[in-house]
């Protein structure tokens, strides 16, 4: 699986220009605040439409300005791990994990579900609701939710930044397993060097909207 990106997006004060390829493994996207990191992954997710360019995953075109293709988010088979987890508050942990399969009209793979529950240590939390979980537990559920949705690529937007150091250290190994067990590209936005050093197989640096070699 390879994600090929060539996109341009204009802002009033700067222009985001990103050309790169991300293959299996974890590609860290770092850079200062306001460098365009979140815009870049939101464009990959289809949450915003870039002004120009082309995005492909394994020869499947997700966006092409010339061909007027803009595949909507729900059809991109993207997994998005948000900074604030964004679990559904009215659903239990188990329902949060399986709702993706239901959305895509796919039967729940009980073997995979059991595997995700085991490696993320969620078995004692399944009947709970997100409001009663700690920040670290929420983020583990968010990782599980993405794993079980069988995406073609995963985006993570500073997933550890709202956690304290102890929680960060708790979650990092789960990202290592996610990286090693899934054979898909993971784009991981962060500006924490320790995180990037432990997790990244490749690093891209954005500065002022431009990729810096």
């Amino acid at each position: 699986m390879t994600l090929q990106v060539d996109l341009t997006h204009h802002f009033p004060d700067f222009t985001l220009r990103a050309v790169f390829e991300a293959s299996c493994g974890l590609t860290a996207i770092c850079g200062p605040s306001g460098a365009g990191k979140t815009t870049l992954i939101n464009a990959l997710a289809g949450l915003i439409e870039p002004d120009d360019g082309r995005i492909e995953i394994n020869q499947r075109v997700l966006f092409s300005k010339i061909d007027k293709i803009h595949v909507p988010t729900e059809k991109r088979r993207v997994g998005y791990i948000f900074q604030d987890a964004r679990l559904f508050p009215h659903l239990t942990v188990r329902q949060n994990l399986t709702v993706g399969s239901w959305f895509r009209h796919q039967p729940i793979d009980s073997h995979q579900l059991a595997h995700a529950i085991e490696i993320l240590g969620l078995s004692h939390l399944l009947a709970r609701r997100p409001a009663t979980l700690s920040g670290g537990e929420k983020q583990r559920v968010a990782i599980g939710r993405v794993m079980l949705s069988e995406p073609d690529f995963i985006l993570a937007d500073e997933p550890l930044s709202s956690l304290d150091l102890a929680r960060k250290l708790e979650i990092i190994p789960y990202f290592e397993r996610l990286r090693d067990e899934t054979r898909i590209p993971i784009l991981y936005v962060s500006h924490q060097h320790e995180e990037i050093q432990r997790l990244a197989t490749k690093t891209l640096t954005l500065n002022g909207g431009q990729l810096v070699p």
Binding site: P72, T73, E74
Partner: peptide, 8 residues
């Protein structure tokens, strides 16, 4: 938005 990324 999160639901959208999950295919809803």
């Amino acid at each position: 938005e999160a639901a959208k990324t999950l295919g809803a």
